[in-house]
């Protein structure tokens, strides 16, 4: 493999990303259970989740088991009692003696990079606080590749663009593919100015309203606007209400436009959208499985160069 751990999407080149997405494609039928293969038989994955994320943990578990590997879990509750007694460095040193690969979710930013320094086995970052969550970004890209097209892509990102790490990582990855990026958010949740300038130097990016671009875009990527970001509830309902997607607005969209969302959603995507052919967010979540299979396979079986 090109790398020993998977810590941040920033560590990957466009080549690396395309390599993983192509490998994921090869695992798609196995991910669905339509074919069987057990290349990771005898390998053990340790899920270390210092904060709960059932969805991500299960996705890694499915990916490992579909490839014939086994999984041990440390739940968030167990992890918090471990964390009281010893350092993360020590926990990693111990677990890396048991397992062949560690999947880590931790509330502190940089925890995964630090863990990798103390681990004898590959570490996969499954989210470190407000920091990185590279497998989410890779599954987003895989979804776009499968259900739309990464080449010549026009994508609108809508919702909380200020705090969402999912959005920030995806934007960075999209610059590798020279995508045309439209940003749609309330002013108080706009992409931070410094970040916007950085993106502008790499690709075509524009702040717009959904109405202006709905006819033109290939992908509409929606994220949740969180109540905690607003000083009072009234303000929240007023703002959040105007960043919702329903079947009505989608009538203006291109036939092959797709709607994505990292889930869980609250009500920013109306259930009326679920029944339309635009809705790809459940498919998107499932695509996490072949993508994580590709990463596990690569980290566990391929020789890496440092």
């Amino acid at each position: 493999m090109r790398f020993k751990h998977l810590i941040s999407i920033d560590d990957l080149s466009r080549d690396d990303v395309e390599y993983i997405l192509n490998l994921a494609e090869k695992f798609l039928r196995i991910a669905k259970g339509e074919e069987r293969a057990t290349p990771l038989e005898g390998k053990l994955l340790a899920n270390l989740f210092f904060e709960p994320s059932t969805r991500t943990r299960m996705s890694f578990e499915v990916a490992m088991k579909r490839l014939g590997g086994e999984v041990i879990n440390m739940t968030a509750q167990e992890a918090s009692s471990v964390a009281k007694g010893e350092t993360l460095a020590d926990t990693i040193k111990v677990v890396s003696k048991y397992a062949d690969v560690i999947v880590l979710r931790h509330p502190l930013e940089g925890a995964a990079r630090f863990a990798a320094e103390h681990s004898d086995v590959p570490v996969i970052n499954a989210g470190d606080g407000a920091g990185q969550h590279p497998t989410q970004t890779l599954l987003d890209l895989y979804t776009i590749k499968k259900e739309s097209n990464l080449k010549g892509l026009k994508i609108a990102l809508m919702g909380d663009l200020k705090y969402s790490r999912t959005v920030h990582s995806l934007i960075k990855a999209l610059t590798l593919f020279n995508a045309k990026i439209y940003l749609i958010s309330p002013p108080s949740l706009a992409l931070p100015e410094e970040f916007l300038e950085e993106v502008r130097s790499m690709t075509d990016v524009e702040e717009v309203n959904l109405e202006d671009v709905i006819r033109d875009i290939d992908v509409l990527y929606v994220t949740r606007i969180q109540k905690e970001r607003f000083p009072d509830e009234e303000e929240y309902f007023k703002v959040a209400g105007s960043y919702k997607v329903d079947a009505e607005i989608l009538k203006k969209a291109k036939k092959n436009m797709i709607v994505m969302h990292p889930l869980p959603r609250v009500d920013e995507i109306d259930v009326s959208v679920d029944e339309t052919h635009y809705a790809k967010y459940f498919q998107q979540t499932f695509y996490g499985v072949p993508v994580r299979m590709a990463i596990l396979y690569e980290l566990l079986l391929e020789k890496f160069e440092i």
């Binding site: 509330p107 502190l108 940089g110 606080g129």
Partner: peptide
């Protein structure tokens, strides 16, 4: 919320970048 400010055995590490006259440091972690 950076791991370097936790109780972990860790030293801070920054990458130094210069653009023209301005210098910035980026946390490695």
């Amino acid at each position: 919320n950076c791991i370097t400010n936790s109780k972990e055995p860790i030293k801070s590490k920054f990458h130094i970048r210069r653009s023209g006259e301005s210098v910035r440091a980026v946390c490695h972690y």
